[in-house]
């Protein structure tokens, strides 16, 4: 177990280094720089700007300089927002993305799991059809359709919520519902599939034969195995919820990190691009690791190694 963890952690270092290096050079080769604007700055101003941000130095020196800063935990100043550092921007916005992600995950699991279990238990009944249709609908309707529809009905027509913004607890409802619903749909379908497979297993029949109640059979015996596909899905899904919330953050004007991740590339905010990429890379690696551990715990057939 410990050997497994140590090995995985050591593997992380070169992966992160490759991602950082590739991103560093790729973003530099994109046409247009951080100071490219409709109104060109005069040559002497451009020189001053480049000197301030060390862009006048050779690329390899900028790279080693940046690498040194990152090792010290300093992701540098933002090019776009002169009075903020990348560390500050991440510290400011990551919690928002995490909160949105967590709430969406609760929505996704809270809707998806029961829907999937019901559909599997009442297989081929109308309950199954309703649950499966709802799940299919959730997969088909993209967030940029569902979000504005929810806003139209609940914010503009009913006036229950704000149409956008991230001020009070009520402002969390529509964004997490929108983001959660899509994942709920996937989870419902995966749960149904996993449960169907498990429910036909011998040990479930044995449990039934021993007189266990229907609820107990599902809760104690079937669910643990039935959730395996969901768990493998959750690792990348959580990363997706955290990184891919750009659309939701734009629709609802949520000040999260997802939008910085995308907009920093448009702004050629080199340091912010690198900062968010490193953070998300580390996040995805960590989540995949967590999924591996969870799978071993859920499935006795698997072992660490």
């Amino acid at each position: 177990m410990i050997r497994f963890i140590v090995r995985r952690l050591l593997e992380t270092i070169p992966v992160l280094l490759i991602i950082l290096t590739a991103t560093f050079f790729m973003i530099r080769f994109v046409p247009g720089g951080p100071f490219t604007a409709e109104k060109a700055v005069t040559p002497e101003v451009l020189r001053n700007l480049e000197k301030t941000y060390h862009l006048d130095q050779p690329l390899w020196r900028q790279y080693t300089h940046y690498l040194g800063d990152v090792l010290r935990g300093d992701l540098g100043p933002s090019f776009k927002y002169p009075n903020r550092t990348v560390n500050e921007i991440i510290a400011d916005k990551l919690p928002v993305s995490l909160e949105l992600g967590l709430l969406s995950l609760i929505v996704a699991l809270g809707i998806g799991l029961p829907l999937g279990v019901f559909a599997a238990v009442k297989r081929n009944s109308w309950i199954d059809y309703v649950c499966s249709s709802v799940a299919m609908l959730g997969i088909c309707v993209p967030t940029f359709v569902l979000g504005p529809l929810l806003v139209l009905f609940f914010a503009i027509h009913l006036g229950w919520f704000n149409a956008s913004g991230w001020y009070g607890p009520l402002d969390r409802v529509l964004p997490s519902l929108t983001l959660g619903c899509v994942y709920a749909a996937y989870i419902a379908r995966l749960t149904r599939g996993g449960m169907l497979e498990v429910l036909s297993q011998d040990y479930v029949r044995t449990a039934r034969a021993k007189g266990a109640s229907g609820f107990r059979v599902i809760w104690r015996h079937a669910l643990r195995g039935g959730l395996l596909p969901v768990v493998s899905f959750l690792g990348p899904a959580i990363a997706g919820i955290l990184t891919g919330s750009f659309v939701i953050e734009t629709i609802f004007q949520v000040p999260g990190l997802g939008r910085e991740f995308v907009n920093s590339a448009f702004n050629r905010d080199y340091t912010l691009v690198l900062g968010t990429v490193i953070l998300y890379a580390a996040l995805i690696i960590a989540l995949n690791f967590a999924v591996d551990v969870a799978q071993v715990w859920l499935n006795p057939k698997l072992k660490f190694e």
């Binding site: 504005p148 806003v151 139209l152 503009i156 149409a163 913004g165 629709i251 609802f252 004007q253």
Partner: peptide, 11 residues
């Protein structure tokens, strides 16, 4: 579009 929805919602 977000701006317009916020206007219509009175924000």
């Amino acid at each position: 579009d977000t701006e317009e929805r916020a206007y219509r919602a009175g924000q």
